[in-house]
Amino acid sequence: MAMAMEAVAELIDVRKYYQMGTQTVRALNGVSLSFQQGDYYAIMGPSGSGKSTLLNLLGCLDRPSGGRYLLGGIDVATLSDNALSDTRSRRLGFVFQSFNLIAQLTVIENIELPLVYQGGSTSQARHRAYELAAMVGLETRTDHRPAQLSGGQQQRVAIARAMINDPLVILADEPTGNLDSATQGEIMDLLDSLNQAGTTIILVTHEDDIAHRARHVLNLADGRIVNIETAAERRRRFGLEVEA
């Protein structure tokens, strides 16, 4: 477990400013934070607090206006557009609120898509995709189109897709926001099990019972970190019993 203490992602005084007409919006105003290998973070905060901006930066979809973001030891701010794309395809996994599967592709094709952009051998990619489809319990649905699946099944496909490149981090943006509560539980159980197997997970949520599953909860407001609670502290605050 010595490896577990290695920082996979590190933010150092990260700022993100947007120009809205004459006004400068400070979406992130000096965020410093480091994520360890195998960590499980929930990011919470009211709308406009900078959750989405932080997730976009962590996901290499955007570059910080100031400060440094080190992903696996590499400063993302200095990377070219192509290098950012490659980073996304090799080191990150995304799970979105609205699943975001590609309609014309089958389940298996959706799962292997990140590997296609790495230009890897297709037969290997296909093999790995089938393994992951089995892992999320969809081995009988591999030739289906997303429209033929339920919301929960689509999100399973999305999770399998996020896992195909053995990412440093899985970034999940309200992964259960579009699901009923029973399915919510299933999806969160799946994410929990991935984390227990060693995958670092950062998720954005506004639901407390989702946040309770995380090891750390990051509270954001006005582009700043308000505090970072451990699961135990949080459960105590909510008057829940603390697991042994």
């Binding site: 996304r88 975001n100 898509l113 952009y117 490149n165």
Partner: peptide, 16 residues
């Protein structure tokens, strides 16, 4: 447009 966004997020380069 959304498909383009998804593909880009999953690692597609502009050239892809």
């Amino acid at each position: 447009t959304r498909e383009v966004g998804i593909r880009r997020a999953l690692g597609a380069r502009k050239s892809h």
